[in-house]
Design a protein around this nucleic acid. Structure first.
Lengths: 372, 372
DNA sequence: TTACTTTACACAATCGATTGTGTCAAATTG
DNA sequence: CAATTTGACACAATCGATTGTGTAAAGTAA
């Protein structure tokens, strides 16, 4: 191996200072440096000061690799998401990164591209990177937890968020979709709607089933019947929402309110209504779901349900850190359910309803279009 | 220290297999295992096979920390972005992660939150994580490269993207905004517009200055005069775009085309025009800039300039890897300039113009609203 | 003053993988 | 057949930080 000389401060500037350098300079042992820096009790205050001063002077940066190797744990958290696009995942990741950093962790990101095989590889990568814990939102093609066994058997803390598999005892953070459907529908009721339609999503997906259930709950509570003719099943796309609306409006007794299971189909519905000369919200009030970015730029702006993306990220990190800290001691898997938030905007505001919750409030942190 | 026993396969499942385990099992030296796995020539094919088989059997995962520590370089790339929100940065990060993974690297993400101090801390973190290279898009409060000296002095490859500081010899990937303004304006001309207005952005920012310049270039090329009365300076917000449009339409000779320096202000302009009873694109054609997500859901959809977010990420990684590979050997900083792409949509399509470029094409990879 | 605790630090092993240098035997060459 | 090359593997140092144990000296209690 090439011998490496270490002249005192830093000749080419290429070599980062190590604890050994500090030790040599101070004429003390490596141990002393290490313990001084980690504020160990067996180091005198005077020595601590000296070490600290010197480390500042040479701008000492601990080598995390070495530290992690020795301790068997790094200060890294692994994230596996289907992809980093759209509104949802970037926001959650944003929340995760922020919370993680606050706790002294860095995050390493992996995309599964909706592919189980890739997801499996991601896990292997994270394992070999010796992360301290893993946060996962499952790919669409994931139907079992098999490949997570490896993680679990290593005793690595694991937390799922948003996309989880039902029926397994795992740590998870999810949104209460049923509550979302409920408050959305209640809001429409509070605006005077009496015939509220629902643009539903594919019912084999829990989130959509739950949103619909919340819708039913609110209707029942208000003493209104469940009218299947007021429910249109869509694929959640804008186009599909428009078609659904056309269908609803063609009926004998058209709705005066629409709760869309997503913002895209709600938008489609709103556009169709206006094309047919209806006023929104006067003739028909509309609520969406997800608080997509575009909901603040349409005319009128769209009332929707915010999914608390950032909070989800933060909650996931909190949960993960808890598991990390209780280090293996028979931690019981816990599920955190986030309460969705109604964001009232123009598409449903027939009159200024006191206590209708926060109005508008842009949710994207930097709506500043000057980014790029 | 607590002594650690290592029974053969894996008792509690908690201990990952190391090369030492394999060596013991095969009765060979650690060296042999290491070299067999890295396909070193001094290991016989028979032995290589045996080692490989055993490593599969025990599902051996190399400890990257150890490897990186020894080699002095990890397989990690650091990313520093202002934040992970909106359309632009997530997409770039997506591109970066994809390209990096393809090259066998993982990415670790940091947000500066538009704060130089945080940016500085991010760099320190990445340095101590021993990343192999760093990708940076500067925070808005960054006005000098001072804190990057530390990185440079360590000989760490560094590539900037999108947000860079002018006049410094650095590796960077940026978008050709001038070209964007040019093709956008040319497109409007090709649609028969003759009085093309421009909703300009703050001119102290290069990107906006360049977009305006491209606009001028196209006008000049078409033999049209630079008419300052056709330029309105906005803060890029939707509201501001609407006001600009109002102003333009109130003038004696209103425009028949508008090139907005951003999608938000273009949207505002379009809405204002329609409010005043004008038809888009028939009476006034409109182009935006950035290919924001909402541009595909408006009525009509908005013609815009795509900033090649993903390509930018990929290009940045390519450049970084180049620098990493030419490892310090006096690499001359290089700038990659990406060509923006015109995305023709409804707001400017007066007649189907042959050769007008790709039509529509949703750019978000998963427009599937079922994410969450 | 003797015995016992602290205080303050050093030694040396260790985490897991990498790599320059040996070593020994088989293969090739003259 | 002796001499040299090549093949196949082991030794041991190393990356940088952590930590159990050891050991002086100083402080305290009896």
């Amino acid at each position: 191996m090439a011998p490496r000389k270490k002249p005192e401060p830093d000749p080419k500037g290429t070599s980062p200072v190590s604890m050994a350098d500090l030790a040599r300079e101070l004429g003390v042992s490596l141990t002393t440096i290490s313990r001084a820096l980690s504020d160990h009790h067996s180091i005198g205050p005077a020595m601590k000061q000296k070490v600290l001063k010197l480390s500042k002077k040479y701008n000492y940066q601990p080598n995390r690799l070495a530290s992690a190797l020795r301790k068997g744990k790094s200060q890294l958290l692994g994230i596996v998401v289907p992809y980093i696009e759209g509104r949802f995942f970037p926001s959650v990741v944003h929340g995760i990164e922020t919370a993680a950093r606050k706790a002294g962790y860095n995050v390493i990101i992996c995309q599964s591209n909706e592919d189980v095989a890739q997801e499996r590889r991601n896990l292997d990568t994270l394992l070999s990177a010796q992360v301290a814990g893993i946060l996962v939102s499952l790919s669409r093609t994931t139907h079992d937890f098999q490949h997570f066994e490896k993680v679990r058997s290593r005793g690595l803390p694991l937390v799922f968020f948003d996309r989880i598999l039902e029926g397994d005892k795992v740590n998870a953070v999810v949104l209460d979709d049923q509550e979302g459907g409920y408050i959305s529908t209640r809001h429409l009721l509070s605006q005077g709607c009496r015939r509220i339609a629902h643009l539903a999503g594919p019912q084999h997906l829990n989130i959509y089933k739950n949103r619909r259930q919340g819708y039913f709950d609110a209707l029942r509570e208000a003493g209104l019947p469940e009218d299947e003719s007021l429910i249109v099943y869509t694929d959640m796309a804008q186009q599909s929402g428009a078609e659904g609306m056309r269908q609803l409006l063609a009926a004998a007794n058209p709705p005066d309110g629409v709760f869309g299971a997503g913002d895209y189909c709600a938008l489609g519905a709103m556009q169709e209504a206006r094309r047919q000369g209806l006023r929104v919200p006067e003739d028909v009030a509309i609520c969406g779901f997800s608080n997509e970015t575009f909901t603040v730029v349409t005319e009128p702006t769209i009332t929707t349900i915010d999914q608390r993306c950032e909070e989800m990220g933060q909650a996931a990190v909190r949960l993960l850190l808890e598991v990390i800290e209780t280090n293996g001691s028979a931690y019981t898997p816990r599920q955190v359910v986030l309460r969705p938030e109604l964001v009232v905007r123009g598409s449903s505001t027939r009159f200024l309803d006191a206590g209708a919750g926060p109005v508008a409030a842009p949710t994207v942190e930097s709506a500043d279009p000057a980014d790029a």
